[in-house]
Design a protein around this nucleic acid. Structure first.
Length: 339
DNA sequence: TCTGGGGTCCTCTTTCTC
DNA sequence: TCTGGAGAAAGAGGACCC
């Protein structure tokens, strides 16, 4: 289940005057500032605007679009509402970010199509929003199916449909195939999922290594036996900021790093964890990104310890270019003993 | 020219330990 | 005491997801 243009749909719902206008959600909502598009509604997509596009570029495509800031609090609230609806149909649910979820309905007596229709109706009633649903016997195919008839779609993929409906699709439609892999596959004349499925396993292993090679072999055949992940623990907690203007002012970098270290620590403690290592990330003006990690002797949630570790990492960079982004990540998390 | 933020996982290399 | 090798852990980078 995948909500349609989720952030934009939430905004349109609470501000009806936005209906039928191009709406772009991203960053601070100011298209002259640095930031990218989180979601564009379908009107805005007609101008070629899409997720991850720089706001400045989006503005060039459509200056009269309405640009709005990301209101994560509100979207999270709505997300909680529709996920509760889903849980009423089956307790076996996997969260996939804020606007998507997998639901295992194999234990339900009704036909899957009937359940999907009921889910769409119920979500429409309680949120006023539409979603697209894909039905299949595994997550991989369900995910592809959910994307086939957006918006407000309902698509069923059966085992016998793989050749006729999945294989003609571009490889990019496979979960796990991004821009880089798509370009690489293209360079060896593989454009569709069917062409990928025609490549012998040994060849895929040579090109992509053990893990990813096997994955591509199976995925191109529509095979996926992964379980739904209904519970997970965070592995890291991080903060990062891109400066409005690249800077070589050490104090600016240091002040931001100290502030973000404090913020991540606050979240770490709120969520009841301690951490074992600290990673500082620097992205330079040329977009080259480096990280430096410090592992501590023992688990900690002490501000001074973490601040020292963060600044130790910062000292390990050669800051000879202007910096556009600084970030900090706490890793090696372990649940705090609450005695 | 432009390229966010918050995550996960994988791979390769280096360092540590026995 | 020196040298090597194996395996684990740490560190860095990169691809991918929403």
């Amino acid at each position: 289940m995948d909500m349609d243009a989720f952030f934009a749909a939430v905004e349109e719902q609470r501000r009806p005057e936005l209906k039928n206008k191009p709406v772009v959600i991203g960053g601070s909502g100011d298209p002259t500032q640095r930031g990218v598009v989180s979601t564009a509604n379908y009107e805005a997509r007609k101008f070629g605007i899409h997720s991850a596009m720089p706001l400045k570029t989006a503005y060039k495509h459509c200056p009269h679009a309405v640009f709005l800031p990301v209101d994560m609090e509100e979207y999270s609230r709505m997300s909680g509402i529709f996920k509760n609806v889903l849980r009423n149909f089956s307790p076996v649910m996997e969260d996939v970010g804020i606007d998507e979820a997998f639901l295992d309905i194999s234990a339900n007596e009704k036909s899957s199509e009937q359940i999907a229709r009921e889910i769409k109706e119920r979500i429409g009633t309680v949120t006023g929003l539409t979603c697209s649903i894909g039905i299949a016997n595994n997550k991989l195919l369900a995910k592809i199916a959910s994307d086939m008839q957006k918006p407000n779609g309902l698509t069923i993929i059966k085992e016998g449909d793989i050749e006729s409906r999945i294989w003609p699709m571009p490889v990019r439609k496979l979960w796990g195939v991004g821009e880089k892999t798509e370009a690489y596959l293209k360079s060896i004349s593989i454009n569709t999922i069917g062409e990928l499925a025609a490549v012998p396993l040994e060849t895929l292993l040579e090109h992509f290594g053990r893990s990813y090679g096997h994955y591509l072999y199976e995925a191109s055949r529509g095979l996926d036996d992964s379980e739904l992940v209904t519970h997970w623990e965070p592995k890291s907690i991080s903060r990062e900021t891109t400066f409005q203007h690249d800077t070589d002012h050490w104090q600016t970098i240091a002040k931001n790093l100290a502030g973000m270290t404090r913020e991540t620590l606050t979240e770490l403690k709120e969520r009841g964890y301690m951490c074992k290592n600290v990673t500082v990330k620097i992205r330079f003006a040329d977009f080259k990104t480096q990280t430096r990690t410090k592992t501590m002797d023992e688990l900690t949630h002490n501000l001074e310890t973490l601040r020292k570790a963060a600044f130790y990492c910062l000292g390990n960079f050669e800051l000879n270019k202007k910096v556009r982004l600084v970030g900090v990540r706490l890793g090696g998390l372990a649940k705090m003993e609450n005695d």
